[in-house]
């Protein structure tokens, strides 16, 4: 049953991708097709990476409300971008070779994410309230520091930071996209190899360890994959806080399964479908630009509130 739903989800993504690519296609066909396919690929890579990373993160944290963005990862990204512009100067930052910038950002974000998630889950893993509060407060602290640093920038440098920290699919570099896609494939493959262990890890440490799971090792590997996936997608287009929550919640709701062999690809497909169909509606049907992430954040935020308010009291 769940397998059929997964196939159906994949079919919906293919249909939306075809619509996005071919709707109202005009001459010069080659040029427009090439632009659209690049954008389609970036939407799919980012959606799949964030969807997969969120399911993994929620399993690791044993909580369906949390996402890397909610516990401070996005604030960390804004902080790092601001500090890069501040230390290199606007011209220095802009003059960085795109590939080097992408590589360095990805590497910094992976290390920072590992430290952030490691500290949060090690210190507060048993206490979700403490984990969320620590993440939120860390986020406020980092945004505050970034805000302070942004006041030291001149207007042109500030504009560069604004552009770098707002998610956009408009100008994705193809080489970066290819690297991101390769890393996504690597991450997805590693996550799928871990899927059977994650099924057990989802029962929580106290239940899973006596059943024979090397829990701490699995969590470490899973966190490594999460760090890589969110770092790659954020470095590619910028942060989208609530997309993961939407994709993971929909994957659980649609597939009605605890099996990560289905949930992981399911969340990846749904993440990609949300972005592709959203971009199709806004760009092709409504003729709007740059509003997709705002809507994703709005809907994701509403879902987050709904999930928080719906949770039964312990």
């Amino acid at each position: 049953m769940a397998e059929r739903r997964l196939i159906l989800l994949a079919a919906v993504l293919v249909a939306m991708a075809a619509l996005f690519t071919l709707w109202n296609l005009r001459a010069p066909y080659g040029f427009i097709l090439s632009l659209r396919l690049t954008k389609l690929a970036s939407l799919c890579v980012v959606g799949a990476a964030i969807g997969t990373a969120t399911v993994l993160f929620q399993t690791v944290a044993a909580n369906r409300l949390l996402t890397p963005g909610i516990v401070g990862f996005d604030a960390l990204f804004v902080f790092i971008q601001t500090m890069l512009v501040l230390s290199l100067g606007g011209a220095g930052f802009a003059a960085l070779p795109a590939l080097a910038q992408f590589g360095a950002e990805t590497a910094i974000l992976i290390v920072a994410a590992l430290v952030l998630f490691g500290v949060l889950l090690r210190k507060g893993g048993d206490d979700i309230l403490r984990l969320v509060l620590t993440g939120v407060i860390l986020g406020v602290l980092l945004r505050g520091l970034a805000g302070l640093a942004q006041r030291l920038l001149d207007p042109s440098e500030f504009a560069i930071v604004q552009q770098a920290t707002f998610a956009t699919f408009g100008a994705v570099d193809r080489t970066q996209l290819a690297i991101a896609a390769a890393l996504l494939a690597l991450g997805l493959l590693a996550a799928m190899r871990l899927a059977r262990h994650l099924d057990l890890a989802a029962l929580g440490r106290v239940t899973a360890m006596p059943l024979g799971l090397d829990h701490d090792r699995i969590i470490l590997v899973a966190l490594g994959i999460v760090a890589m996936l969110v770092a790659v997608s954020t470095a590619l287009v910028g942060p989208i806080t609530f997309l993961g929550l939407l994709a993971a919640s929909l994957a659980h709701a649609v597939l009605q399964s605890w099996r990560h062999a289905l949930l992981l690809p399911g969340a990846a497909i749904i993440g990609a479908t949300i972005l592709v169909s959203g971009q199709f509606v806004f760009e092709r049907l409504l003729g709007l630009q740059s509003t997709l992430t705002v809507i994703v954040e709005f809907l994701g935020g509403l879902l987050f509130l709904f999930l928080v308010l719906r949770r039964p009291r312990p």
Binding site: A62, N63, R64, A202, L203, G204, V206, T207, H252, Q256, S257, W258
Partner: peptide, 8 residues
């Protein structure tokens, strides 16, 4: 404190 939240 078994707190299994997965839908098993």
């Amino acid at each position: 404190d078994e707190r299994v939240t997965a839908r098993l």
